[in-house]
């Protein structure tokens, strides 16, 4: 059952920023709308979790690239409630810890938010990213080469990501990480053993189970089962 549901409707409430993530909006969902308000133009997606959690993910035109801000309704003011909701969003959308740039309760300086230098793409995140990228392709199938080409559109590659792989000198570390997702077929936590994807000649194909998994984190608006 889908836990994070994409909402077709724009919020009918005012919003307050409560957390920031170091990822592009397309990392979280395929259903992105354009909007504008008193601050600026923005791209956004609205979600619900259960009956009591509503939130928006937005990137305003003046926000740094590859960041997304989590907004909750203005009437969610209790600090413990805000923390509770942020925790749930992070868990249900499978947001890696190193992608959390700031959340309410943490001190900050206006206009100053620096990504940790050691932040990089790790294999658990790369597994989901590979599924997300392939899920949007015809027949939900993508080659490793294509997935590697697309990854930098979802997450800003860090200095550590771009270092040469110690074992594959002709690739950067992040490219090896993505390649490992496809080549390490026997990894228990990998997409193949979990039934989320099947191996193809040069990449992977997302299964119905994989699509349902992506749907459960709000990534897909909906999906139609492929014909047998």
């Amino acid at each position: 059952m889908a836990k994070v549901k994409l909402s077709k409707y724009e919020p009918d409430y005012d919003i307050t920023p409560q957390a920031i993530f170091w990822r592009a909006l397309k990392y979280f969902t395929t259903m992105i709308r354009e909007g504008e308000d008193g601050l600026d133009e923005f791209q956004a997606a609205s979600f619900t979790i259960g009956n009591d959690i509503r939130f928006d993910l937005r990137t305003y035109a003046g926000h740094p690239e590859f960041t997304v801000t989590l907004y909750l309704p203005n009437d969610v003011k209790d600090k413990e409630e805000i923390s509770r909701v942020i925790k749930i969003v992070i868990k249900e959308m499978v947001i890696p810890k190193n992608a959390i740039a700031w959340q309410r309760g943490e001190p900050f300086t206006y206009g100053d938010l620096k990504r940790p230098r050691g932040d990089r793409l790790r294999e658990p995140e790369a597994r989901i990213l590979a599924l997300k990228i392939a899920a949007q392709q015809p027949n939900r199938t993508a080659s490793t080469q294509f997935i590697k080409r697309e990854v930098p559109k979802y997450t800003e590659l860090s200095e550590v990501d771009r270092r040469r792989s110690p074992s594959r000198g002709n690739e950067a570390l992040w490219q090896q990480i993505v390649g490992n997702v496809i080549s390490h077929q026997e990894t228990p936590a990998g997409p193949f053993k979990k039934g989320y994807a099947t191996r193809t000649l040069n990449g992977l194909s997302v299964t119905e189970k994989g699509m349902a998994y992506l749907n459960s984190m709000g990534f897909l608006a909906s999906f139609t089962p492929l014909a047998e």
Binding site: P11, D12, Y13, D14, D37, G38, L39, D40, Y60, G62, H63, N74, Y110, G111, D112
Partner: peptide, 14 residues
Amino acid sequence: PRNGFEPAVQAYAG
């Protein structure tokens, strides 16, 4: 602001 409760000046930080 849209659906807001009162006028507000909005700006980016920095």
